[in-house]
Design a protein around this nucleic acid. Structure first.
Lengths: 417, 417
DNA sequence: TTAGTTCCGTACGATACGTATGTATGTTAC
DNA sequence: GTAACATACATACGTATCGTACGGAACTAA
């Protein structure tokens, strides 16, 4: 279930039989075709450096696997001469699911192999029925909506809040959703579809989503910070999610860097950094300002409105919290030096004023600072990250070249008897 | 020169011609043989899953390349039957250089392809002659001592202090060694041997060395902290060195986490963290202790002796600095969560007392803390890291399977006409 | 000396690749 | 409308690799 490649000595790829070459070439051709969508045989031959015959052979295999399709000749493709038959990647050959489980609702998206979302559904949680059983019906409903059967799903990625071991999919802790602790999600999904399931923390998958759809210019390193009452981060390094030794990397909330803190005993459920820069502290600072006209409990949306109308007391609170958060960014910068830091979570309600304020606070840092952005995907990032994660699995396990050892070819490729 | 693999779509490996299979298999066999040293043809066949003929064919190619050698039959290898001819990896077929340039001396080590050091030399710097020219003679001397010629060197890795761009090998800044700024090192090495040269910051290569020889149990993530007057770190993630967007990741010295600092203006050449926990501050704290008998300027060696004899004033200073450093470790932990943190640099003179003191300071952290170790390699780590880096280049570029495209096979493998 | 075991070498069929040649199907010029 | 041209497709042939099969070589043990 883990996507990392072991690459040990024993697992080194060995070519046993000439059919291995076909496998290698078909995989290369498929990759090429997927990147362009439609192409002629000749253009594929030119791209890969193979002869047209070799390309044709590979395409025959791919056609029999249902992955490509030969469509009508297209005279527009080459101005003179016989018009080439076009080859198309059958992105409808398989589908993947991205699932976002939250305390109040579950969101499921079905995407084809070109990452195009073909069906999507957000369903409020129904507490009257067992979670696994309920999840099963939600998934089956979306599949029905997409017009595909359970067998058409190749891989599922699920995001949920809490502490999750992605190797097993076991949910160890989920303060906001006790019903998912254990293997309830896994069981629910597996009862609906017969495909590998990847289950991970929501922030991790959101990070993948941001890298992929939100900030694709961050090739190598990206940090996604979820900034709300709680604060957590996902770290992408070398284009891969980095989890750390205890599956705990990016635990910004418990960062302790000498910032002002609440008195002992208050907000003990939060970490030091959360107590200092989380939205709860922000609302406390802004709400208790002497200049503020009202004295009712302040909400984030009200604060955002006040910031928007440039109320001094609101701007002042944002500046205070920004300067504290900037200290955290500076620490992140000196240790990790990421290309981009993407900020998501409730705090983004504050809009450009917050970004400006952060930039001001970081202006005095000596080191070159990373690019700072708000998430452009918002809540979508999680589902998108799941889809991307699943498609990466498909690429590696079903489209990738398999290590042929001791005659046991891996799944996906047909044996030529 | 960069070892990372681009793996773009266009560069995807394509099998053009059946000789590709031989290449794949020979590479796999070579890897296998390298891991065991000596093996019979049959055992290699069993290991790789290939037929004996295929193994023999590959071995013939490898023999013609000079990489393997068929030695006398060994009756001990199989108790009954005809004794097998043994195949040996010719680790003397090529050599790599690890070079450690420091302000006062240069250290050069020659290693064979089995990473065995065959010659080593540490030469004090000679300021009377141009640096590049001097480096050239040092390198040639060591090669002479190893009994090999310049053509037998396949790759060189050089470590130097300062800000270095490993992509170009250009030294941008080196406060302690102005003579190496620019391309002096590159020119000196290249005038001695005709091989690719990798030039990087010393801490980075030390990190690789620690991972490889010092703490090989840290498979995935390791942070090497150089702790002296200055403080810097190298970060290994996913088994790879992580540099960050500005080639600046792990810049611990400029970490600012609210620790006690010197008054403004003092030690302006150091960063905040260095001013707070570096050896200069340690000696200042210990030296100004009222309990200390002498009032002369304290050296680290004297302090280490005092710690060893359990002088209260020395232990107290170590405790103070440890608790500050532990704060930095905690930050590192919450952001990066590495498996192991290896500490090197002058501070290791203090020995076990420092480690104990750090453990005490970290005991109260809520999160599970990473394993804390002293470097077992010391100054050797840099040269060892260089050798490892070079051998990795050799593996990828000369032993690895090359993407065969448009008939242009990569270097190393013979064309079969 | 003989049986058993293991290794080495050659022969054969299968498969994939590239090159070469011929055929099919379009556009363009007259 | 027909000829010339350009491109794509299809078939045939030679090359190289692999695996399997079989016979000879070398050594041990009875």
């Amino acid at each position: 279930m883990e996507l990392g490649r072991p690459a040990s000595v024993a697992d080194r790829t060995v070519a046993v039989g000439t059919s291995f070459m076909l496998e290698v070439n078909a995989s290369a051709i498929l990759t090429n075709l997927r990147s362009v969508g439609r192409a002629s045989v000749s253009s594929l031959a030119k791209q890969t450096g193979l002869s047209r015959q070799a390309v044709s052979r590979s395409l025959a295999v791919l056609t029999s696997m249902g992955l490509v399709e030969i469509s009508a000749p297209d005279r527009a493709a080459s101005p003179a001469g016989r018009p080439p038959q076009m080859v198309r990647f059958r992105s409808e050959a398989g589908h993947v699911l991205g699932v976002d489980v939250k305390a109040r609702r579950v969101r499921v998206a079905v995407a084809d192999l070109a990452a195009e979302i073909v069906a999507e559904s957000t369903v409020p949680l129904d507490g009257s029925v067992a979670f696994a059983e309920w999840l099963r019906t939600v998934v089956l409903d979306v599949l029905d909506q997409a017009g595909i059967g359970p067998d058409d799903v190749w891989h599922v990625s699920v995001a949920a809040p809490g502490i999750i071991d992605p190797a097993t999919g076991h949910v160890a802790l989920s303060p906001g959703m006790p019903e998912i602790v254990g293997d309830g999600i896994l069981l629910g999904i597996r009862s609906a579809v017969d495909a590998p399931v990847y289950l991970d923390n929501a922030i991790k998958l959101a990070t993948i989503g941001e890298r992929w759809r939100g900030a694709p210019h961050a090739e190598q390193s990206l940090v996604f910070v979820h900034w709300g009452e709680r604060i957590g981060a996902g770290i992408l390094i070398h284009g891969e999610l980095y989890r750390g030794a205890s599956n705990d990397a990016g635990d910004l909330g418990y960062l302790e860097i000498g910032l002002p803190d609440t008195p002992d005993g208050t907000d003990a459920d939060l970490g030091p950094f959360e107590r200092s820069v989380g939205t709860r502290e922000l609302l406390r600072i802004a709400g208790s300002s002497a200049e503020r006209p009202s004295s009712e409990t302040l909400t984030l949306t009200e604060l955002a409105a006040a910031v928007c109308s440039r109320q001094p007391w609101a701007l002042s609170a944002v500046r205070t919290i920004s300067s504290r958060f900037a200290r955290g960014i500076a620490v992140l910068r000196s240790l990790l030096d990421p290309e981009v830091i993407v900020i998501g979570g409730d705090i983004t309600e504050l809009g450009q004023a917050l970004l400006d304020s952060l930039d001001d606070a970081l202006r005095f840092e000596t080191l070159e600072q990373p690019q700072l952005e708000f998430s452009t995907l918002g809540a979508d990032a999680i589902v998108q990250g799941g889809i991307h994660q699943s498609l990466r699995w498909v690429e590696q396990e079903r489209f990738g070249v398999t290590a042929v050892r001791e005659g046991s070819s891996a799944a996906g490729w047909p044996r030529t008897p």
